[in-house]
Computed example of a mutant assay.
Amino acid sequence: MLEVKNIRVDLGGVNILHDLSLKVSAGEVVSVVGPNGAGKSTLFAAMSGALKPRLGVVELDREALSDWPSQTLARKRAVLPQHSELTFPFRVLEVVLLGRSPYAGFSSHEIDLAIARLALLETETLHLADRVYTTLSGGERQRVHLARVLTQIGFCDLEPGASRCDPGPSEENERFLLLDEPTSSLDPAHQHMTLQTAVRAAECRIGVVAVLHDLNLAAMYADRIVMLKEGRIIAQGAPAEVLTEGLIEEVFELPVSVVLHPKRGCPYVIAA
């Protein structure tokens, strides 16, 4: 369980998050949505451990993030920020292998390499493995970093005797993947690919938190949507419970029509 307990975050003397609480279980996809300035990125930073709340605590398996040894935490929780800066002329495979750094002493180079190649295959970047990272487009870079965090979280686990997604039921094996606007630089096909990967990760008992701007993508792929406004949770629940015309107009100040998606049966939001 990844749990946010009554956190308050102040930045520059301004209260950004107000007594906010949230639980994420292994095996579910949770999408955080809200207008600009709602506090999505601040909540993400707190959940990742990059930002310490003024009040309250963020816990992983009932232990504060700050109390986890960094190498152990890195094997339990992987973070994909909006922007990943890398200016060195590494080859793509080398970038993805950086995700295996927390497994030093726990894994072999052969296993690390096989996991990295599976992650490249999952993100449709295997053909880029030998390319220099700095020569890639923005969308290609984003997919390469997704492959990197997948290798970090053990999405493509190849331990002897284990299936690809068989971490076992114990809390010790629960892992979490945090994605901050993972579709922002991607074309439509790769937006769906990325969120399909998030769903497959959840099937492997990985809890996924994804900050998204596209309400329709959230409706299609999230098990639960958390809607923020002005640093507070306005609503959370299944997509059909949260993506209502009234709530969307209240939070986003945009009149919409909400209909059923003709094939998926989930809510589909249309600007009125």
Results as ranks from 00 to 15, higher is better:
residue 10 D to L: 10
residue 58 V to R: 05
residue 133 Y to M: 01
residue 56 G to D: 09
residue 92 V to W: 07
residue 90 F to Y: 15
residue 13 G to Y: 11
residue 141 R to N: 05
residue 194 T to K: 10
residue 175 R to L: 10
residue 155 F to R: 01
residue 145 H to K: 03
residue 15 N to H: 14
residue 241 E to S: 09
residue 8 R to Y: 13
residue 33 V to G: 04
residue 75 R to Q: 08
residue 9 V to T: 06
residue 149 V to S: 10
residue 107 S to A: 14
residue 196 Q to S: 14
residue 135 T to V: 05
residue 192 H to K: 04
residue 58 V to W: 03
residue 215 L to N: 03
residue 203 E to M: 07
residue 21 S to P: 13
residue 43 L to V: 14
residue 40 K to S: 06
residue 119 A to T: 01
residue 108 S to C: 03
residue 174 E to D: 14
residue 251 V to E: 03
residue 22 L to T: 11
residue 226 V to F: 02
residue 138 G to P: 11
residue 243 L to Q: 08
residue 15 N to V: 12
residue 106 F to I: 04
residue 106 F to Q: 13
residue 61 D to W: 05
residue 240 A to W: 08
residue 74 A to N: 14
residue 210 A to E: 05
residue 253 E to D: 13
residue 29 V to Q: 06
residue 266 C to E: 08
residue 122 E to D: 08
residue 30 V to W: 10
residue 244 T to Q: 14
residue 72 T to N: 06
residue 101 S to P: 00
residue 94 E to D: 15
residue 133 Y to I: 01
residue 226 V to M: 08
residue 137 S to D: 11
residue 266 C to R: 15
residue 154 G to F: 13
residue 143 R to P: 02
residue 109 H to N: 08
residue 144 V to G: 01
residue 242 V to I: 07
residue 93 L to W: 01
residue 42 T to V: 15
residue 74 A to Q: 05
residue 178 L to E: 12
residue 128 L to H: 02
residue 232 R to K: 15
residue 33 V to W: 01
residue 202 A to H: 06
residue 48 S to L: 14
residue 62 R to A: 14
residue 244 T to R: 12
residue 110 E to Q: 11
residue 142 Q to D: 03
residue 164 R to S: 12
residue 102 P to A: 09
residue 94 E to P: 04
residue 30 V to P: 06
residue 132 V to L: 11
residue 93 L to D: 05
residue 47 M to S: 06
residue 178 L to A: 09
residue 12 G to E: 12
residue 126 L to E: 04
residue 171 E to W: 04
residue 89 P to E: 14
residue 252 F to V: 03
residue 140 E to I: 03
residue 72 T to I: 06
residue 162 A to M: 13
residue 191 Q to S: 07
residue 238 A to H: 12
residue 97 L to Y: 00
residue 108 S to N: 07
residue 272 A to L: 08
residue 168 G to C: 10
residue 172 E to M: 10
residue 103 Y to S: 11
residue 126 L to V: 00
residue 260 L to D: 15
residue 59 E to R: 10
residue 220 M to I: 08
residue 134 T to Y: 09
residue 240 A to Y: 08
residue 88 F to S: 03
residue 128 L to Q: 01
residue 67 D to I: 06
residue 4 V to H: 02
residue 201 A to V: 06
residue 87 T to S: 13
residue 219 A to E: 08
residue 215 L to W: 09
